[in-house]
Structures are given as structure tokens and as C-alpha cells.
Amino acid sequence: MISAILVMAGIGLALGAILGWASVRYRVEDDPLVEKIDAILPQTQCGQCGFPGCKPYAEAIAKGEADINKCPPGGADGVKRLAELLGVEAKPLGEGLEPKPKAIAVIDENTCIGCTLCVQACPVDAIIGAAKQMHTIIADQCTGCELCLPPCPVDCISMEVVKEDVANWKWRYPVHMMKREA
């Protein structure tokens, strides 16, 4: 009887030790859900959702503090993918949030006074410039977040919609006549 109890207790302790060790050894650093949500978000870091960047919004969604339809750059497609991930119903974008065509910021270099305010505002370091030197935008890195527009004291930054050209043209969804069924 005692030996049986001891054996069971021993097994329990051993398994407990293994589990304890495993929980330390294989601990997941971040909340994997946050990472998954963050991977869906478009990373414009624009703050239109009301959070200071995509990661904080992802954290808020994961905690259930924010709705999934607050990201205009992600569009309806982004909401759909978030809904699929979280197992909830997709819904239209929130009030007053509308997706805009993809645009990038352009600095009017004749007007720029070199104040560096936009450089500090850019969330992805896509503006090059130093104090009293002309600033310019790295077009490839600009996410179109518009965060550089308000700080500019001379309003020399404007958003230019990315035009379709031969390089970024896409084949359209085929439109074809289907015969009406009799």
C-alpha cells in the first residue's frame, strides 16, 4: 500500500518536474495571437485606428478591447482575414473610416525649409534630411500614412496617388458572358 502510494507520488513528482522544466524551456515569448494579427495588418503605422501603430492595435484586438473594423488601409479584405483568424463575423469598416487609394507622400523641394519635423513624424524612417537641408521621401519605403502632413509648417508635403503603369498593372478578373439558363 505504502509502496504503491510512493510509486504514484514519485511518478507525479517526476512528471511535474518535466512539465515545469518544459514550461520554462519552451516558453513562448510573445502572445502568438498578437503576432498573427499584426501579420495581417498592413503596417502603415498610420494610427487611423486610434492606436499609436499597428502593433498596439493588434494587442488591443487580441485583448478584445478594439473592434476588427478600424483599419482603413487594410480595407474590407483585411477585415475579412481578421474575422477568419479570430472566428468572428466580418463587418464593414467603422464609421467615418474609408479606404483610400494607395498614395505616397511627395515633398515640394522648393518650399521645404529643412525643419526636420516630418523626419521625426515618419514612423518608418522614410524621409531623409537634416536641419536646414532639403528633405526628400524614399518612395519605396513610404507607407502613405499621412503622418508627415500635419507637422509640416509650410505645407510642402502632398499625397500622390500611385498611378497604374506597365510595371504594376494587373490582369483583370475575366468578365465573360454566361448563357442564361433556360
Partner: peptide, 26 residues
């Protein structure tokens, strides 16, 4: 159509990854 959509998405994904990296570094 499907190929160019997939291509565009891959490019967007690549751009988003870069933006995330740059934002985190900033």
C-alpha cells in the same frame, strides 16, 4: 488574373514586413 493577384499580395506582404521592421527599429 490569379497569378497577378498573388504576386501583388506577395509584394504587399514584403512591403509590410519591411515597414514593420523599420518601424520597430525606429
Amino acid at each position: 488574373f490569379a497569378k497577378s493577384e498573388i504576386w501583388e499580395r506577395e509584394q504587399e506582404k514584403h512591403g509590410a514586413d519591411q515597414a514593420r521592421q523599420r518601424h520597430e527599429f525606429k
